[in-house]
Design a protein around this nucleic acid. Structure first.
Lengths: 130, 130
DNA sequence: GCAATAGCTAACAAAATTGTGAGCCGCAAA
DNA sequence: TTTGCGGCTCACAATTTTGTTAGCTATTGC
């Protein structure tokens, strides 16, 4: 996100002010990002573990997304103490931890309406008019 | 989203298969989109009402986002019966209605951690190591 | 020494999203 | 009959996101 004062950036800011919903979505959208958060919450909290989980991701992209998640204070990068080749792990902040159940809600919603099952307008509306 | 079999599109598909979470996020991310859903749920269910609510949006963009929301079966477009200049309204489907509380959860999460307040790793982790 | 593992990053290219300019239809009021 | 509202859409340009190529440090194992 290399901003400027383009219309795009201005509109983004506008939405951020309308409701935190928009900044929340900005933080979790982006390819791989929420999947990374979820994977970390499941224990895949090291660079190489994430790489294994997401076989198609390139290291550059993974590093970039991790940095962004760190910027948004969803995760924190830590050296694992007392490891000789000095490992790095990613830990969810409390912000990140609170995000997980919300992601699960989103996931449930996605599952419920996967494919195209059971889509309808609010009952009475379907069988009226055209 | 004019897909192809670009790496980008392939990775998107990969994530969709990993978890519905990713398809859910793909449906609600995108500038204005979730704000539109929320606005419709609040009663701003006509083109011109949405335009008023979102002063910076261009009509082209609004129309496009509405179309995408329709494609994802989150909203449905209906003619309002018995109106003489034949008005159009947008109605949330049950899928859309179920989405609203999830958006509210996201919003709450965003509010809780707005600015940079109270970010910390899981208690004990802060005051250890470097 | 040489390869492998872990953990990255910069610079660039490709693809996707977002915004702009212009225009179109039907209807109604002035 | 011209203006204005409501409701859009197309083609194109600007911006942003995503992916690629190449590299770099440090340590372990052979």
């Amino acid at each position: 996100m290399r901003k400027e004062n383009s219309t795009n950036a201005i509109n983004e800011q506008f939405l951020f002010q309308v409701c935190e919903l928009n900044s929340a979505i900005a933080m979790i959208s982006g390819r791989w990002k929420s999947q990374i958060v979820y994977s970390i919450s499941q224990g895949n909290n090291r660079f190489h573990l994430l790489k294994k989980e997401l076989p198609n991701i390139s290291e550059q992209v993974l590093g970039r997304q991790l940095r962004e998640l760190e910027t948004h204070a969803i995760i924190i990068k830590r050296e694992i103490p007392e490891t000789v080749p000095s490992g790095i792990e990613y830990v969810l902040t409390n912000k990140g931890i609170d995000l997980v159940p919300v992601l699960e809600k989103l996931c449930d919603w996605g599952k419920t309406y996967a494919d195209g099952k059971a889509i309808a307008v609010c009952s009475d509306l379907i069988n009226s008019s055209r």
